[in-house]
């Protein structure tokens, strides 16, 4: 399998007032295309930070990251935003849907930035919502959905642009066991059936077990 993500000697340090807090230390990692990778580790080990760096929503203090040949660490903010819109789908622990938009409109949101026509956008959104099994809830607002359904809408939003990479930060962390199982099954399906590369941060060993590979982080280094 071809390598999709190259993390080269990446370090990340946060500044809190006058203190510098190291989070990642000289970390190197390759993720092959089509892999379902789980990142585990205790709180503060740097797993979410690593996920953010891979997804281009934060920048490393040192080192470089490339995704499918694009060195994202050297992109401007505007170029990085465009890259994120085209290449990455995000799934958050708390879903982060826009409360005033329906399920359909939430999933459509990333497509507003594309040159797709209204009819094309509708087709993409309906397909994404069908994949996550919410074809009949398109007009529902987030508050009218259960947690599991909200997360499925978030996954539909993540895949609607057909990204090469899906990053998920504790996607089952706020769900009951049944809903969590549904989400994990859906992620597995996206990986196996739709060949999406997935990087998932989790505390849950059961969730991690669904992945092809589990990496442990400890104090900013791979254990």
């Amino acid at each position: 399998m071809e390598t999709l993500i190259h993390v080269n000697a990446v370090s990340k340090m946060y500044k809190r007032d006058k203190f510098e807090i190291p989070v990642l230390n000289d970390l190197t990692l390759q993720v092959p295309e089509g892999k379902f990778l789980a990142l585990m580790g205790p709180s503060g080990s740097g797993k979410t930070t690593l996920l953010n760096l891979i997804a281009g929503i934060d920048r490393p203090t040192k080192g470089s990251i490339s995704v499918k040949g694009t060195e994202i660490t050297s992109l401007s903010e505007t170029a990085l935003a465009k890259w994120r819109a085209n290449s990455v789908g995000f799934v958050f622990q708390f879903y982060n849907l826009i409360p005033v938009l329906t399920a359909f409109e939430n999933v459509e949101l990333p497509l507003i930035l594309t040159p797709l026509s209204k009819a094309e956008r509708k087709q993409h959104v309906e397909t994404a919502l069908q994949i996550v099994g919410l074809g009949d809830r398109m007009d529902h607002y987030p508050k009218q959905l259960s947690g599991g359904q909200e997360q499925r809408v978030a996954i539909a939003r993540a895949i609607v642009t057909d990204p090469i990479l899906i990053v998920a930060d504790e996607p089952t962390g706020d769900l009951d066991k049944h809903s969590a199982e549904e989400i994990l099954t859906l992620l597995e399906r996206l990986n196996k059936e739709f060949k999406k590369t997935i990087v998932m941060v989790t505390h849950d060993p059961h969730a991690a077990a669904k992945a092809d590979e589990v990496l442990h982080l400890e104090k900013g280094e791979l254990a």
Partner: peptide, 16 residues
């Protein structure tokens, strides 16, 4: 603030 962060993640730029 959090919604704007989500929108930035989804690719919305400063002008949007």
């Amino acid at each position: 603030t959090k919604e704007y962060a989500v929108m930035k993640v989804l690719g919305f730029a400063g002008k949007h």
